[in-house]
Design a protein around this nucleic acid. Structure first.
Length: 504
RNA sequence: GAGAGCGUAGCUCAGUCGGUAGAGCAAAGGACUUUUAAUCCUUGGGUCGAGGGUUCGAGUCCCUCCGCUCUCACCA
């Protein structure tokens, strides 16, 4: 017996348990000393490419009757998902990324030498099949093999063939197995690429440029979050992994790239939860001479285009919740919602502080807007079913946002909420360098530096001093958007390789 | 960070009142030319998460630790 401690995938038929990778071929040696040299398959037809032309073969099926094998010649390649050997006849269920198809291998049909290959087959192996399309006695579409090509051996045993791999940790740790054996998982990630492609198409339609900013920052600005620290040896320089894309994209606005975006990874050294992964994908986009109203329209377009790209209508299921994405989404001001949910005058700081105490928050030494914000998060956010744009935030909470004309205490900012989850955040961008510098300097009382977006970035201020056009800016949490559009309950279900502890 | 649940064969899971470690799938040998999670016969496979304790005896009871999942709290 072989050396594999788990599945005994090897036996003496594969001499010395050797699976040798050669330049562009893999060689297996049989017990009879026969060497099977396995060339790469030049072309293959995808399984759905075999199924689709069936429309044209309706007549063919009717005329031929069951058990006939004179359909079109096809070549397919894929992984063995099921295998049912019945003596001199072997049925395989073969899977490629487009679907599953049955293969029938008859000893008489492929010849003794070729049939010997079936003795080497295991679940999970990759094989290529030449054959004719036909139907079995039970009417199942089947490739009746005329030739087998043994392409790749799998050395690890597959998961249980009916239940599959269900342990959430193992599914994330061995995503390659999850993708192979859980078709829902493959489908979710296929939808992810479609949504991301759709976003790029939508923005290209508005003339946006896609750019790449630095991920190593000297100042981790643009958001309120704890950064990962790192260090550049040659320059002996401390660096942070970026927590947002904002400040470099705005520099590009100054430079005259008037519609610009980056979709990329940001890193936040914070907790892990079904809605949080330490690295996640964000898109931030900036549109010169636009404002936050423009950004609301664009947000709706990005989402509805994403729905279309995944073949969905406006009504979407998310777990046992329903989401109605029919645009336009509700637009309500921060103060309106505050008053509605708390029955307190949003301008009465004393009453708000008293209410904060009543619900167990400590307003001591905090700026009134911070207290108001804490009450808002506690009492309002969770009740937002949405999709709803919450607009016009207290400006002291928004150091990067333009103030409303004639109403400096209100910032032109919105956040998009769906079932209590924050999905997007957008501003009419602050382009006043003097005010920006001032806001970077003054930390809000009661806020730790990591909790504040206000971090001095002198080069960014210098950029603003060169003149940034008025602009609308938008950030969307891509992973969360994908959760909503793929009915995934955890961010880990839409990130291929979420952060995991060391394997023990 | 707090609470609840879980951890047994490669995978999916049973394991009663504390009394010899179980099943299905997978693997190995055999039979079978129309199977559908094929079927039938045979065989091998275990640090019961780790450590300690109680007991004549612990997968089972107790303690500590590790890991995972869910819920709640916080960053998006």
């Amino acid at each position: 017996m072989g050396i594999d401690p788990w599945g005994q995938r090897f036996d003496d038929r594969i001499l010395n348990s050797v699976v040798r990778e050669m330049a562009d071929q893999i060689r297996y040696v049989t017990a009879a000393g026969k060497t099977l040299v396995l060339p790469d398959l030049d072309t293959t037809t995808l399984v759905d490419g075999v199924e689709k032309p069936l429309v044209d073969y309706k007549g063919w099926k009717a005329e031929q009757g069951e058990g006939e094998e004179t359909g079109p010649t096809v070549r397919v390649a894929g992984r063995i998902m099921l295998m049912r050997p019945t003596g001199k006849l072997v049925f395989l269920k073969l899977r490629d990324w487009s679907g599953d198809i049955q293969v029938m291998i008859g000893k008489g049909q492929v010849g003794d030498d070729n049939f010997a290959i079936t003795k080497l087959l295991d679940f999970g192996d990759l094989v290529g099949i030449d054959g004719r399309l036909g139907r079995t006695n039970t009417g199942e579409l089947t490739v009746h093999a005329t030739k087998l090509h043994f392409l790749t051996k799998t050395l690890e045993p597959p998961p249980e063939k009916h239940a599959g791999l269900t342990d959430p940790e193992l599914r994330q740790r061995m995503r390659y197995v999850d993708l192979t054996y859980n078709t829902d998982s493959l489908d979710t990630f296929y939808k992810r690429t479609k949504i991301i492609h759709s976003i790029r198409t939508t923005l290209a339609g508005h003339g946006f440029w896609e750019v790449e900013g630095p991920t190593l920052h000297t100042v981790a600005g643009g958001a309120a979050a704890k950064p990962f620290n790192t260090h550049h040896n040659a320059l002996d320089m401390p660096l942070f992994l970026r927590i947002a894309l904002e400040l470099h994209l705005k520099r590009l606005l100054v430079g005259g790239i008037e519609r610009v975006y980056e979709m990329g990874r940001v890193y936040r050294n914070e907790g892990v939860s079904p809605k949080h992964n330490p690295e996640f994908t964000m898109i931030e986009l900036y549109w010169a001479y636009a404002n936050y109203e423009t950004m609301m329209d664009l947000t709706e377009q990005i989402i509805t285009d994403g729905l279309k790209a995944t073949g969905q209508g406006y009504q979407v299921k998310w777990g046992n919740l329903d989401i109605d994405f029919t645009p336009p989404f509700q637009r309500r001001t921060y103060d309106e919602l505050f008053q509605e949910c708390t029955k307190i005058d949003p301008n009465d700081a004393t009453a708000i502080a008293a209410f904060a105490k009543k619900i167990g928050l400590d307003p001591t030494g905090k700026h009134p807007d911070v207290v108001k914000s804490e009450v808002f998060e506690e009492k309002v956010e969770d009740s937002l079913v949405g999709p709803i744009f919450v607009i016009d935030y207290p400006s002291s909470l928004c150091p990067l946002t333009k103030r409303k004309t004639g109403k400096p205490e209100v910032a032109e900012r919105f956040e998009l909420f769906i079932h209590g989850m924050e999905l997007a955040n957008a501003y009419t961008e602050l382009n006043d360098p003097l005010l920006q510098e001032d806001l970077f300097k003054t930390q809000l009382q009661g806020m730790e530096e990591d909790d504040s977006m206000a971090k001095m970035d002198t080069d960014f201020i210098r950029a603003l001093r060169h003149g940034m056009p008025p602009a609308g800016g938008l950030g969307i949490g891509i992973d969360r958007l994908i959760m909503l559009l793929t009915n995934s309950k955890s961010i880990r279900d839409v990130i291929l390789f979420p952060l995991l502890r060391h394997e023990t």
